[in-house]
Amino acid sequence: MKKTDIIVISILFLASFWLLLAPTSGNQKMLNSKEMLQEIQKKNHFVSVDNLAKRIIENDPSILLIDVRNAKEQENMNIIFYSNGTTQASEAWMMVRQMGFKNVNVLQGGVNEWFSLILNPEEPSITETKLEIENYKFRMSAKQYFTGVKVDNQQNSGSSTSIKVNTSKKKKKGASGGCS
């Protein structure tokens, strides 16, 4: 055998041996029935309504509410799916729409667009349409709402029609996050 053959075989052998010793797949450990029962009895999995309310008020970014009420109760909700882009959200949308749900949407552009337009809006040039400039102003106020960053309004001094961000949005956001 050629020298290269022997080197390649040795590397493959060592790597597969390493794989054999590597931790078995999955960062998520499945629980067996005994462990599951223990967890249920400990009741550590409950979060109090006060705690949840506090975390929502504090805008805790680490919570993900998932609404698992039955279909009838969710009928009148506007379900908005989001993912990083739109591919996965669109897949979810297709499945749910196929089931016959009516009020279902996909967040256009996904989290990426949220990041670039709402959290990092680009200032339009003066020659842009009025609509674009209004959009920009809305996005700046939205940015302030979501991040708490004070927005410098110098450039908008011409027209001070500040766009109010509807506070009821907060409610809706909770619902959309919950359903995705």
Binding site: D5, V8, L12, S16, A22, T24, S25, G26
Partner: peptide
């Protein structure tokens, strides 16, 4: 035969190693 066998094994070992160490969700 050698090349494609090696390629398949390299891919398999690499993917599952990355999976084991949390770099890739297989």
């Amino acid at each position: 035969l050698k090349v494609f066998f090696t390629a398949a094994l390299t891919a398999a070992i690499g993917l599952f190693l990355m999976n084991s160490y949390g770099l890739m969700d297989i």
